[in-house]
Amino acid sequence: MYKAHFCLRELPFGITPDTSFFFACSNYQAALNTLLIATNNGEGFIKITGEVGTGKTMLCRKFMSTLDDSFVTAYIPNPSLEPRPLMLAVADELEIVLEKDVDQHHLMKSINLRLLKLAEQGKKVVLCLDEAQALPLESLEALRLLTNLETEKRKLLQIVLFGQPELNLKLQNNTIRQLKQRITFEYDIAPLTKDDMAFYISHRLNVAGFTGSRLFTHGALRRLYRASGGIPRLVNILAHKSLMAAYGKGRQQVGPANVRVAVKDTFSSKPHSWFWRLLGGSAFFFLFIDMAVDYFK
């Protein structure tokens, strides 16, 4: 691979959520601050949304690692579960030992007792659910009922929902309007700006051990931003492939031609020619064709 070629300790653009690479630009730092303020205030529900690839899982893990010892965290990465399996997953995360084939009443009672015991120890419990847009409506309602558990002073459980924008649409459903009212803090993660993307790339290279002055040329960064739209996951994929292309050519710097090779090899990258930017995608393309056909009839 290209690590030795570019004097790197590790690969800088992996797509796994390694918190050592967390990039604290204004957007992500604001989201993290929202989470920390809300949980320290003891809020019941907190919501973080963002498009696919904007770094929600990375933010979630960074948030959990930032909390001090007064917090107990539970993490469910794939919550597309019906209410009972979801409650069993919560119990497992809270290290609750259950009897085989426990009924719903005793399951909820066990969770409540565990939360009370942790509260007596001065602990705050935070449950983080990634990909929350996949939660069935019945499971969202079960989570709302779970947050009814409280002492006279505070909630026994705080829940953070991390999800794609589809989560917002799901929360519009009238059957879970009570849950929507309980979301007191929320933040929407936007893609990186062009300047932030340049700093993001530099940051990840530095963390990976790069000590040179500039590895990606200005032209490479411009092409990379056009193709990725500032979506961190796409930036990582394209930057990684660009480094491979430069290495394959024996180059010490990544140029626009190397990024072009990476874009051609990446199905999910954004169309970047002037024609597609002008037409704005396939919908406008077919509209353009229909207009042309009508004109020449």
Score class of each variant (00 low, 15 high):
Y2Q: 06
Y2N: 07
K3E: 13
K3C: 11
P12Q: 05
A24G: 12
N27S: 15
N27R: 15
I37C: 05
A38G: 09
T39G: 00
T39I: 02
I46A: 03
T57A: 03
S65F: 06
T66E: 12
D69N: 15
N78V: 07
N78H: 14
N78F: 13
P79A: 08
L86K: 11
M87C: 07
L88G: 05
V97R: 13
V97H: 10
D101A: 10
H105T: 09
I111H: 06
R114E: 15
K117W: 12
A119H: 14
E120M: 11
K124E: 00
A134E: 00
E138H: 04
L140G: 01
E141C: 02
L146D: 05
T151L: 03
E152Y: 02
L156H: 08
V160P: 09
L161S: 08
G163Q: 02
T175L: 05
T175M: 01
Q178K: 02
L179P: 06
E186I: 04
D195W: 05
D195H: 10
I201D: 11
A208M: 06
G209K: 02
F210T: 03
S213W: 07
S213V: 13
T217K: 08
A220R: 11
R222A: 08
G230R: 10
G230D: 11
V235D: 12
I237D: 00
L243W: 04
L243C: 06
A245H: 01
A245V: 01
G248N: 14
K249Q: 14
P256D: 05
V259C: 08
V259W: 02
A262C: 09
F267C: 03
S273A: 06
W274V: 12
F284T: 13
F284M: 12
D290A: 15
M291D: 00
M291P: 00
A292M: 11
A292I: 11
D294Q: 12
